[in-house]
Design a protein around this nucleic acid. Structure first.
Lengths: 99, 99
DNA sequence: CATACTGTTCGTAAATTTGCGAACAAAGAT
DNA sequence: ATCTTTGTTCGCAAATTTACGAACAGTATG
């Protein structure tokens, strides 16, 4: 009878990032922000067929997962990729998926 | 006033795969199966500190997302990566994350 | 100061996810 | 034919996710 192994920290971080990417709207936002530089919440709201409160929630999730960050630029908020963590996510997925 | 754009099929597929990868146990399983060849449910059950019914559910999710497949090899079931879809996932994430 | 604009937070509802143990099904072994 | 092994399915509960509109807060503008 062996001691049960548990998942590693790396696996947990991969899962955390993957979970944040697990919704089409959030993929859309990440794709936009990783390709071009930054954007405002309003720009997204114009293009996405969801309530702005719902969008705000998705952005919050991405923020909490560490994938994006928001910078106040009154009266708007400029969202950008969190470069450091995006880089970590790239590395983790590269290793994980063998790409 | 412009027609609202919606997320693309590609984004939906990325989100679908990401969602399936969004749990440490499922990352663990995928990592195992993508590195080595295949394994049995029992092998996983021995190492993971979860009920076998819970493991079965996780495997079902990975199956439904198309990332793994199970082959009956009585009395056990041999799980392998679904190579075709795994390859698609690799490609999608490569493009998506720029890696 | 009142108004408009931008975006978050709150309250709510419905759906989904996660997890467990018990019951079940299929196939081999005794 | 019964028992054992392997893994799924069922039934349930708790937590989380998704979504919306209304209300709110902060900052500019008239």
């Amino acid at each position: 009878m062996s001691v049960k192994l548990v998942t590693t920290d790396k696996q947990k971080r991969i899962a955390r990032y993957a979970k944040a990417m697990g919704h089409p709207v959030r993929v859309y936002v990440l794709e936009l922000l990783s390709n071009q530089s930054c954007c405002y919440s309003g720009d997204l709201s114009d293009e996405l067929p969801i309530a702005k409160s719902t969008l705000s929630q998705h952005l919050k999730e991405l923020k909490e997962a560490g994938l994006i960050q928001g910078e106040i630029e009154s009266p708007r908020i400029k969202y950008c990729i969190n470069k450091e963590n995006w880089k970590e996510a790239q590395l983790l997925f590269k290793q994980f998926m063998g790409i």
